[in-house]
Design a protein around this nucleic acid. Structure first.
Lengths: 183, 183
DNA sequence: AAACTATGTTTTAGATGCCTAACTATCACC
DNA sequence: GGTGATAGTTAGGCATCTAAAACATAGTTT
């Protein structure tokens, strides 16, 4: 049988997670996953990829024979998908809630995805759902955040905007559909 | 050409930041900072601390002579304070906005503080200020988030609560009448 | 002062993760 | 089938971060 003692218990490193995510994504984008592409995606050299592939193979996260095409195992797919999911959620938070541009958000999400636990990630999801679920307190409210950011917290301006906001809010509550929005 | 003492340009590692933050905090808590205390705080062994102290000393982030008490340099204080600040901000976000309990939030903040850039951190701050700054859309709204989390996104409940919410909101808006101005 | 204890350091070593240089396999094409 | 370009691997090294064991120092107690 397999080496059952420690391998399965040892937690994955951030680097391993990055590789699995990259392989997972490349697998969706291309017919085959190549060492060269992984290297390019992660900004490392090919030998670095090769050595990591050996590790991932030993951990049974990929099927890998040298010079052959590589594939994620089921276990590897699970991890890759999970990291991809984290990345996506955090990036959404950064772009949709904090209004950070996509490129920057993508970079930050890439670092954050290893730092945030599953349970905290769930809270991020719930929070975003919460913000989006109630239309008036959702998207338009966030539009106001944009203005707040750009003009600072001038109390007068805040109050003025609050009033407009309140008017729209009341009407919207009664209809509760179509969120006609654009930035 | 700039190979030798170009230490000032090399970025600090996460580990270095952790040590500086720990030293910064211990300096505020105790009269003197001891190797033993740093080790305990960071969950590492004393030899690990000693070797890191040498690195930090070479980088001119601490004043350190062996067997003597150690102190942060001005540069070290700046970094230590900055990391402490990041930690505090992220933890506040996790506790105040996402409603995560303190202990968990503290752990997560500790990992996130190295992953989030200064500009993104600023957005976190602005967002929290934004949420808190507008009373009705602020604290009470977050109280509703708590309920949303616990009871799920039942549309009926959401609507019911939204109506109450809107009522309160309107009252509050009216009491702010006199200051209302426009840009 | 000698002995004892707590604290700190050195030495050695292991795990990661990255690199360059040099080698080898694969594939497309003539 | 040979050949050259491309892709992939191996070998050897470097930097970082860690710990165990052995050793050194400082401070306290008797």
């Amino acid at each position: 049988m397999q080496n059952t003692d420690d391998i399965s218990k040892k937690p994955l490193t951030s680097a391993m997670e990055d590789y699995l995510e990259a392989i997972f994504n490349l697998g969706k984008e291309k017919r085959v996953v190549r060492v060269k592409d992984i290297a390019k995606r992660l900004g490392v050299k090919m030998p670095t990829v090769t050595s990591m592939l050996k590790v991932l193979s030993k951990r049974e996260l990929i099927d890998y024979e040298k010079y052959e095409y590589l594939e994620l195992t089921e276990k590897g797919i699970d991890v890759g998908r999970e990291i991809h999911r984290r990345h996506h959620i955090l990036r959404s938070f950064l772009t949709d809630i904090l209004n950070i541009d996509f490129k920057k958000a993508d970079e930050e999400a890439c670092k954050m995805e290893h730092a945030v636990s599953a349970s905290t990630l769930d809270r991020f999801i719930e929070f975003m759902e919460f913000v989006q679920f109630c239309p008036r307190v959702g998207l338009d409210w966030l539009k106001y955040f944009d203005e707040y950011r750009l003009h600072g917290q001038d109390p007068d301006k805040c109050l003025a905007r609050m009033k407009e906001f309140a008017g729209g809010f009341k009407v919207r509550i009664n209809t509760m559909e179509e969120v006609g929005e654009e930035k």
